[in-house]
Design a protein around this nucleic acid. Structure first.
Lengths: 298, 298
DNA sequence: ATTCTTCATATAGATTATCTATATCAGCAT
DNA sequence: ATGCTGATATAGATAATCTATATGAAGAAT
């Protein structure tokens, strides 16, 4: 599209408007400039293109034949540009764009969306599932939820839930366990991206210095949980990851021993910006759902 | 498309280029400006649209989700504008655009076009049939042929053929005529737009002061000739109008008396411009065809 | 820990594009 | 002859766009 370097886009727009509207006056009205400006731009554009596009008659300007086919394409072009601008400037205040980790979406949020729709029928969610940290001030996201230290620069973070870890196994495996030390002999499936290690829980369970039989490593926590649900061993899970599987009794926490990792679930919003009502409503709803979800851990 | 008034088209182009090429540097190369210029334009366009279109990462700029759909439309738009510019700047030197009166095209030129194609296989004609006088300097026409005085301002005119008029009738009507005065009793069909009257011919035929029985008036010379060919009377025709009908013996010139109108067929070209070779070739061909066509009047 | 590289942004001021205001021209209608 | 309509030309003001340069952030290499 380097050929556009040899012409002025404003001039092409003037040409298109005159061609479509039939006179300099009508084009000037639409473009918000004077007749003289449009006349100059049309004349200059014809020179840049090396071809007359209009014939001047006492009754006004008529399009030449080749001008007609050129104008048809100009019109397509400016109509597409206009549609782009309309799309950009359109504000649908009833869409809330949230950014969450895929695993959070898949293992906790997706099961609750109907309840959000029931509570807030006027708000539609747009879920951007990504592991990358997002800054709502410089992206088109309204709010994010992430697990981490909470110390991220450039954003406002608000603790939602302190992260606790605990082993999960299938009920069949759980039936073979009598005390926490029995767990040392169960193969462990490992989430390679996890920000914590087994020793954090082992310490909490009074088994400092001991080691798990770590086996398969997964690059996705969801896959890792699937492996545990398939009976391939135990996984060191956290609340939101395991909540639904626990609730459905596909997995159990055999001893109820939980260790804090020092990390947490945080809301992420733009710093120094007054919070939109839909964002406030969403946070309140998430807090209620989280509170209800955590009851099954007591 | 008034919404385009609130944005800068050059800025939208910078946005599109960055979105398509992935970096400020690549976009700057295509647009022929510096990185700083592109950066400023993108930032200003995001402000004008009221929405971020890119997320800035250490590896470069990535498109936001809504940015992607906006950029898709911008791309369509600039591709169409680029196609328009390419179309305008394209020079097909093998197309010759001529402007002739519709009646000249229909009654004389169209029957000879195969011979032009045979003689000049590399030149394609684009025939703009219109009664309006054309100025090749200010339109996209290369050459015109018109009947008139030849005194038109702003153009160069070159006599091709002096206009002569003569009555034409069907062979059946001709068989009933013995001398020119017999024609006075034949109904005359009249071309309302003709620049001459019957008295010009009557004077030449030695019938000054006499009158034809003028009947139906037509606003199109071709229709008028059709009426004559349908046996509805005599028409005062001129050479190029009647040539083909005479050649096919659908009509005859009963007495061979022709009067000069003072008008002529003229080539019309742009003043003070060196003639393109294809224009010269076309004129030479027309002169040969005209010469051959006029032989049947001798 | 330090240095280098890559990519984007900010700023000041120069250059170019675009605009307004006004005068003028051509053709048509009265 | 006059008035109206529509386009064009011109001078100069205003805004858009650009270059040159400095700066900042993040990641890679040492």
């Amino acid at each position: 599209m380097k050929n556009l370097n040899s012409v002025h886009l404003n001039g092409l727009r003037a040409v298109e408007a005159v061609g479509r509207l039939g006179s300099l006056q009508a084009a000037a009205d639409e473009l918000g400039v004077t007749i003289g400006a449009v006349s100059q731009q049309v004349i200059k554009s014809e020179a840049q293109l090396g071809r007359p596009l209009f014939e001047r008659t006492p009754k006004g300007m008529t399009v030449t034949e080749t001008g007609a086919s050129i104008l048809a394409r100009l019109r397509e072009g400016f109509q597409a540009l206009s549609a782009a601008v309309a799309l950009a400037q359109h504000r649908d205040d009833n869409i809330l764009t949230i950014s969450v980790a895929p695993v959070f979406a898949a293992r906790w949020l997706v099961y609750r969306l109907d309840r959000f729709a029931g509570r807030h029928p006027d708000i539609r969610l747009r879920i951007d599932a990504t592991t990358q940290l997002v800054n709502p001030a410089t992206s088109d996201v309204d709010i994010g939820i992430r697990v981490g230290s909470g110390h991220w620069s450039g954003v406002k973070s608000e603790l939602l839930l302190a992260q606790e870890i605990f082993p999960v196994v299938t009920p069949q495996i759980a039936a073979t366990l009598r005390e926490p030390a029995d767990l040392l002999k169960v193969p462990a499936v490992v989430d390679g991206h996890a920000m914590f290690k087994w020793d954090v829980w082992l310490r909490e369970a009074g088994l400092s210095g001991r080691c798990m039989e770590e086996r398969h490593i997964f690059n996705d926590a969801s896959l890792c949980l699937d492996a545990a649900m398939a009976g391939q061993g135990t996984m060191l899970a956290w609340q939101t990851l395991a909540a639904y599987a626990l609730e459905q009794k596909c997995l159990v926490d055999p001893f109820g021993i939980r260790a804090r990792t020092g990390f947490g679930h945080y809301f992420i919003t733009a710093e120094g910006v007054r919070e939109a009502q839909k964002v406030t409503a969403f946070k309140a709803w998430i807090r209620e759902e989280m509170e209800e979800s955590m009851r099954l851990f007591q």
